[in-house]
Structures are given as structure tokens and as C-alpha cells.
Design a protein around this nucleic acid. Structure first.
Lengths: 197, 197
DNA sequence: TGTACATCAGTGAACGCGCGTTCACTGATGTAC
DNA sequence: TGTACATCAGTGAACGCGCGTTCACTGATGTAC
């Protein structure tokens, strides 16, 4: 039956939210429209009243998820901006273990290339925002690689570190933690962070 | 009909090989047993005469693919071992564009966590071999992060760089190349490689 | 403000489709004599 | 070496299942008068 416009908007948000969480956790192809709709408290038919396809919902969920995640991370920069604060958040065991609430960039990087150009464009847009944020907190100490290059490599390194830490976790949890610590330290150094041993 | 033992062994190899290539290109869940069998010149029934399940074939394909890929990369170390040679190979546009022939670690990192512990163990085993190889070519210049840590971070960085380079390629090919170059340079520096500007 | 009706968000059964897996069968291979 | 037969790798039809999507329908909402 028909619902109020406000209710319909809430339902739409619930779908985007559920899709975001489930996709980050299981991948676009690892979750079905039935599960997404159910988590949003609706049937799958409602999904198609709001979105033309699962792919379209996935794209919107990606962008919305990034916006939320980015806002959360950006808050860390109240006061003194510092690369270390970003890295502590992005490479924590919490970030590794709660991918459903994490950054879509990290969760979906390897999946994007298997989808269409729209998905790639959404990913790129978000990635560049993240790069700009990192670039802004780098000090220009390294004469060899400029800030832009270091920012590109730091984000790529962070994404890879989380992927690998998750991959080895089931069989070697200790190694998984070790990878996070190592990448945290090395990427900090790349960003000009002074050693602390 | 029954075939010779030699022929059966060849067919098994063909299945492992086809599975390896297709899985690296499309992911475990992105390719079906029909396609794998067809590429091996067989029907899907033959696959089940050789393997108990698709998952079992995928696990064997992962290990076999890594062995082959690792042997190829290790050959680069004839003569003077150097991190740069590894990085040039692993972060080339060729490696990005020919994932079907590349390293299973790079291709499957993010998928592994969604499969069972067996898959995780296979991944870890291969990852640690790669880490040992990188660790062996690092010189001990960085006082802050030890060789083990730097090796862990370099491999994670390489895996992330390829994932991101592929993700942005469809919409921003120039950025994709830029990421490879930046990660090549930064990870080289991490490994103690002297600047070359 | 009250009434009549068009709109449309949401429901749930049904669709075709491709998936991984099973199984009765085939027929050349490998073995026992 | 030749014959009889058990073995089993490979075939291809069939299985149940879950997928994304469609569609006839419902009934409260929003609007026109």
C-alpha cells in the first residue's frame, strides 16, 4: 500500500544503508536483494520501486557509505591535522574486524574492476578525495617522491594491508595483527612521521 | 570413456590451469564450473571425477598458480638480487592488465577472507614465501622499521596498488598509471632504494 | 472542510536463468589368467 | 601373447536452489473539486 513521502524516503535510506553494510561485508555478488530488503525491513519488490536495479543501489550505497565514512575520519583532524591519526584509524584491528562499518574504498577496491564504468567512476571520485585529505597532512620532507605520489601510495598501501590482514586472519591471527602494525609504521614513515622506537 | 593414466593427469593439469587463469581474472565466484571445464577441453562431469568440489579445485589452482608465478619472479634474481627488479615486475602495467597470468596473491587477496580456513591457510603460506623473498633483498638502512616489517608492508602495498590501479582504470586510465609509478617509487624507497630523480 | 478519485510505494507470487552437484551410462584402459 | 572382464575417467541429462527481475494487485496517500 502507498506510504507517506517521508516514509518512502526513510525506506529508501534504509535500503541504501542495509546495502552498504552488507556489500562491504560480503561483496556485491555475495549478498542478494532479498537479504538487503529484509535487513531494511521491506520486501524485494520495494527495492525495485526505489531503484532500477541492484547495481544502481550498489552504486548509491558506495557513494553514501564513503561520504559517511569520510566525514567520520575527517573529524579526527579537529585540532592538529596529522597523518598518524588517519593511519591509526584506518589500520586498526577494529577497522579490519568491522568492515561493514568501514570505508567502502577499502572494502570494495578489488571488486570494482569487475563491474561497470559507473562503479569505477564512483570509486575514483572517492579515492581522489581521500588522496587529497592525506596529501594535505604530509610535510614535504622526502625529496624523492612528492606529496601526491606519497599520498597515492599510502592509500593503496592501506587498502592492501587491510585486505591481506583479513585474508590471513582465519589461519594466522598473529600474522594479521603484525601486518597492521608493520604497515602502520612503514606508511607513517613514508608520510614523514618521525621514528618512535 | 576411460582414458590412459597419463591422459587423466594431463586433463587434471588442464583443469587446474584453466581454473587458475579464470579465477584470477574473474574471481572464484565470478566463474563457473562449466566455463572452467570448457576451457580445459572437458565437460563439467570430468571436473568432479578429479576434484570433490569447485572449492577444492580453486584451492589447488591457487597453490599451483602461486608456485608458477613465484618461480617466474624468482628468476629475476639471477645475478644481483634487488628489490627494484621485483617491484618493476609486480607493479608494471603488464601485471595490472594481465591478471590472469599474474600472482594469485594479488588477484585473490580480498576474496580469501570470504572463503574457508583452507583458503586462508593457502594464501598465508604463499604470502609468507613472498615476504621472505622480499626480506632477503632489503638492506638494513631503516632504523625505525625492521626488514620483516618493511617486507610485510611492501607486499601489502603492492597488492593494494594493483587493486586500486585496476579499480580506477576504466574511468581514469591516467590515474591508474600514476598509482603504479607512485607505488613503485615509494615502495622502492621503503626498501632502501636510493632516490633517482 | 468534506468527498471522489488518481497515484504509487510496497506486497508477494511467479518468471527464466545459471549455478554447483549428482548420477546412470559409456567404452577404452588396465589387469588377471 | 591372447582373451575375458573389472575398472573408472569422462559424458551429458537432470537435480534442487537461489539469484535478479517482473507484474498484477493492494490500499493508504495526496490531490482536485
Amino acid at each position: 500500500m502507498r506510504v507517506t513521502k517521508e516514509r518512502a524516503a526513510e525506506n529508501r535510506k534504509a535500503l541504501v544503508d542495509a546495502a552498504g553494510h552488507l556489500i562491504r561485508e560480503k561483496g556485491v555478488d555475495g549478498v542478494g536483494v532479498a537479504e538487503i530488503s529484509a535487513q531494511a525491513g521491506l520486501t524485494h519488490g520495494a527495492l525495485y520501486a526505489q531503484f532500477p536495479s541492484k547495481e544502481a543501489l550498489a552504486a548509491e550505497a558506495f557513494t553514501a557509505g564513503f561520504r559517511k565514512s569520510f566525514a567520520r575520519v575527517a573529524k579526527l583532524q579537529r585540532g592538529r591535522p596529522a597523518l598518524g591519526k588517519y593511519l591509526d584509524a584506518l589500520l586498526s584491528t577494529f577497522a579490519r574486524d568491522n568492515m561493514a562499518d568501514g570505508c567502502p574504498l577499502t572494502a570494495s577496491a578489488s571488486e570494482v574492476s569487475r563491474h561497470d564504468e559507473t562503479m569505477s567512476a564512483r570509486f575514483t571520485e572517492s579515492y581522489l578525495q581521500m588522496v587529497a585529505a592525506i596529501e594535505a597532512v604530509l610535510d614535504d620532507t622526502d625529496a624523492d617522491a612528492d606529496n601526491r605520489q606519497r599520498a597515492l601510495a599510502i592509500i593503496a598501501g592501506e587498502i592492501g594491508a587491510i585486505a591481506v590482514a583479513r585474508a590471513v586472519q582465519k589461519s594466522h591471527p598473529g600474522l594479521s595483527d603484525e601486518i597492521l602494525v608493520a604497515s602502520r609504521k612503514v606508511l607513517g614513515n613514508v608520510g614523514g612521521e618521525p621514528g618512535r622506537r
